[in-house]
Amino acid sequence: MKFRAIISHDGLSILTQALLPALEKHGKTCQVLFGPEEVCLLQTTGDADGMHISITLGLEILFEPEEFRCESRHNNLIGFQCEVALFRRVLQAASMHATERLEVKLAMRKVPGSDESKPFLTFTCRGPNLHMVQDLPISRPHAPGEVDALLLSHTQGGAAGGGALCPLYLDLLPMAPRLLMTAAGLKAISGTLRLALARQGHLHLQVAGSGVQLATEVQGLLALPAAAADGAPALTHVTAEGRLREALASGDARTAVVQLKHFSRSLQSVLLTNPAQVLCGIAEGGGHVHLVMVYRSQHEDGGFDDKLSVSYRLPVREDG
């Protein structure tokens, strides 16, 4: 099992400023999966309080491709678990110095006071007047079976897994900051949130406490795929509540109940990672709520970047 790579400047900043802080909100630990073509950062249900988060990064985003080496006996895949906060701190320390070359490699090292050697990711920074080595403790690399399980959960949760797409997505990006403010206020009333998405581009957030109901309707969101939104009859009811009933009755809307904190924490990563679209959908059968962040390519104009995607799967409460 061999892993050695040079983290690029862009890769370092995207990890320290956007992705790792976003993961840190959801849980203490994360799974890292290095492969010959892409890197996945995952938080499975055990890491992230019932949620499933997967981030896919093309190799060239993080590493200098010509000096990348990742070999293992299992399809050249290496997977392990580490602490998000430590990972971020190590990288942050590296980014604070004028680093010319940040090398990372997988190493086994003996720790003082123990005969066994333990696995580490070793980060070596080299700059004009700096040579810093940091060891990030990681879990024992996953067995092939565990790696496969991770990979499977990743393709199911990720935008890449074509089969797992929801029938309808709404782009929440234009309203994300406003929704976050509302969600912060709703938190005081109840911990569970009923989400409803309608083909007409309407999103409803509802909470209910004892003796109080509160709801927000957002109209005019972009509905995707376009085919799903086509031919949706206009909702005519004068009140927001009525419009939701109308859409539910005609089968144009779907609802699911999720934990409010899952929803707001996931939306918070919009502020950190600055995506081009925030797609929210409810899975066929209502098994989970799916939030996908889509990013613009930094190099080509206008196109979406298929090398980077962040996807959240929110568990749906059964009793809702």
């Binding site: 509160l214 709801a215 927001a240």
Partner: peptide, 16 residues
């Protein structure tokens, strides 16, 4: 009515 679309928030509080 904002740039992002129309937002309608409503609540009902049971009185006693």
């Amino acid at each position: 009515e904002g740039a992002g679309g129309v937002l309608c928030t409503y609540a009902s509080l049971d009185s006693m």
